[in-house]
Design a protein around this nucleic acid. Sequence first.
DNA 1: AGAAAGCTTGCACGGCATGCAACTATTGAC
DNA 2: GTCAATAGTTGCATGCCGTGCAAGCTTTCT
Lengths: 202, 202
Amino acid sequence: MGLRERKKQATRRALQEAAARLTLERGLEHVTVEEIAAEADVSTRTFFNYFATKEEALLGDVPSAPDEEARRIFAEGGPTGGFVDDLITLLTASLISAEGLAAHREAMRLRKQLMEREPQLLPGMLARFHNMEQELSRAVAERTGASPEDARPQLVAATAMAVTRHTVKCLHFAEGEGVADVRAVLRDAFRHVGDAYSPPND
Amino acid sequence: MGLRERKKQATRRALQEAAARLTLERGLEHVTVEEIAAEADVSTRTFFNYFATKEEALLGDVPSAPDEEARRIFAEGGPTGGFVDDLITLLTASLISAEGLAAHREAMRLRKQLMEREPQLLPGMLARFHNMEQELSRAVAERTGASPEDARPQLVAATAMAVTRHTVKCLHFAEGEGVADVRAVLRDAFRHVGDAYSPPND
DNA sequence: AGAAAGCTTGCACGGCATGCAACTATTGAC
DNA sequence: GTCAATAGTTGCATGCCGTGCAAGCTTTCT
C-alpha cells in the first residue's frame, strides 16, 4: 500500500475520531465541521472530500454487503442445505463475523454511546441496516428461486435483520463474556421468532 | 373546531402538498423551502413553524403510536388470548386500519412515489417505523410480563414491524382489489415467517 | 370593546454543503 | 534525479437550511 493511500486512511480515521470525541464531549449541535477538521489538521473543505455530511463521519465504516463468496454459496443452496443454518453462516461470515466483533468491539461501544447521546444519528444507522436487508433479500430470492415480484424474500430478510440487530444488542450486554457463540445467540433468536409466530400459541 | 385551528390545518396541508408536488416535478434538490412556502402563500419563516426540516413536510402525518385503547387491551392479554390474533388486532386497530388505508390511499401512493424518486427520504421513513416498533415492543413486554432488560419483546416487535411493512407493500401491489382482508395478509405473512424459522427445513 | 393568547412575518445570523480554480504532494517513466 | 501525469488539499464564493428574536396581526375570550 502506497504512501498516498496510507495518508488518506489516517486522515479518515483522524476525522472520525475527532468527530466522535468532540460529539461525546459537547453534543453534536455544539460541534462544527470546522472544529472537527481543525482537530484532524485538515481544512474544512477536506472534511467534505471524505464525508458528505457531518453525521456520516460518526457512523463508522461497517460493511453493508455480505462477503461475496459467502453470498454466492448461500445463493446456491449451500453450505449445508438447511435454511436457518446457512442463513446464520451467511450472517456471521460478514455482517457480524466473530473476528469483526472482536476487532471492532471498541468501535461498536463508541457507536452505541453515540446513538444514545445523539438520536439524530439513528435514521442514518437504520438506513444502513436497510441496505443490508436489501442485499440479504436478493440473496434469499436467488436461493429460493422466487420471482422478482414475490415480496416474501423481502419479508424473510427483514426478519433476519431484526434477529441480527437483536443479536448485536445481546452481545453488547454480554460484553465481558465470550463472543464465540454468536451462532448460538442467532439460533436462539430465530427459534424464538419461529416459536412466537408459527403455531397458534401465546 | 375554531377558525384558528382550521386555518392551521389548511396551511399545513397546503405546505405538504406544495412540497410533494414540486418535489415530484423537479426533484428535491431543485426545490427550496422558499418556493414551497411561496406556493402555500406563507413566509419562509412560517414553513419552519410547521416543519423542522424540508424532508419532514414530505413524510406526511402517519400515526406512530397505536390507538391507546387497543394497546391497553392487547397489553392485558386480550381480546382473544391468542398472541398472533391479538397482535393482528392491535396492528389493524391503528397503524394499518382498514379505514385508514382506504382513506389515505392517495396519500400512500404519493409517499411511495416520493420514496422512489428521493431515496434521501428513506432514513426518515425508517425512523418512523422504528418508533412504531418501540411502541409495539413496550406493549409486547407488558403483555408477556417480560423484565425491562429482556430483549425478546424487542425482537418480536421488530419482526412484527417487518411483517407490517411487508403487508403495506403487498397492499400497494393489490391496489385495485379489495383491502378488506388486511388481516388475512398479515396472518399469511406471520405464518410464512413462522414456517421459515421454526422447524429445521428449507 | 378591549385585553389576552396565539400565529405570522421580517431580519439577522451561523452553519452546512458544493463548485471551481489554484496549489501541493505522490507516483511512475525515463 | 528529473519531469510529467495524476491525485489530493485548500481557499473562496455561493446558496440554502434552520433558529432566535421582536414587532405586528388575528382570533378568542370576557
